[in-house]
Amino acid sequence: MLKDIEKLLRQDKMPHIWCPGCGNGIVMKAMLEAINSTGIDTKKTVVVSGIGCSSRATGYMNFDTLHTTHGRALAFATGVKLAKPELNVFVVTGDGDGSAIGGNHLIHAARRNIDINVVMFNNNIYGMTGGQYSPLTPHGKFATTAPYGNFDRAFNICDLVKGAGATFIGRGTVFHTKVLTEMIKGAIENKGFSFVEAVSICPISYGRRNKMGTAPQMMEWLKENSVPVKAASKLPPEKVAGKILVGELYKEEAPEFTQKYDELIARFQKGAE
């Protein structure tokens, strides 16, 4: 509820800069709800972001926050987590920031299974710079740099980080806010690299160019084109094709990086005695 999370907002920085109808505010709210309901120490919580619309979120969240360089949020976050493993480290990134310029950091952070919670705000476009297509812009959709439709194929970013070694993967949308909050909660509880894809809406730079209507119409589109992952396994494949699967996609147990690192240090300290 809003009254419970108001204390986690930097009220003096509001209203935020995001466009009317932008879903980023909803994703940020889901993050604050998840942090509030899991009861983690807010004084020991660090949120790191890169560059882009999504990455402005660190300016509004009342934790220790770092607004870093383009695509490098995970590199900074890895440093923070290794220096102080007791901190709860979050990374806020966008589809362009996290999967294009920061794509290499993403797969290697996942491979290491370092205990960082990544929330990727996926609005399918580079909104801040004027609507260029990103690696998550679906095939055939229009962007300023794809005036005849995007002929690239999009990443399935959740499958990508799964292949790279992430131990918790979930997906929610700005329409399915409860699912999104639950997924971020799952990410917090997982000791290892956690990845949540938050499918957002960009009515200005993406929706307008692709004739998707107003913000409420884009919300309806999300509602109609999403399927809960549990239901998807029971449905015929033609009903699931092209839909957004929401819910917990993957979970496994694996050794965590900072823990292994501490064990190594302890081993050598013992040897020196």
Binding site: M1, L2, K3, L9, W18, G23, G25, I26, V174, F175
Partner: peptide
């Protein structure tokens, strides 16, 4: 609380 949860601008509070 659909409005409260989906307001991207933190404008609506239901129940005070």
């Amino acid at each position: 609380r659909i409005c409260e949860e989906h307001c991207p601008d933190y404008c609506i509070k239901i129940g005070g």
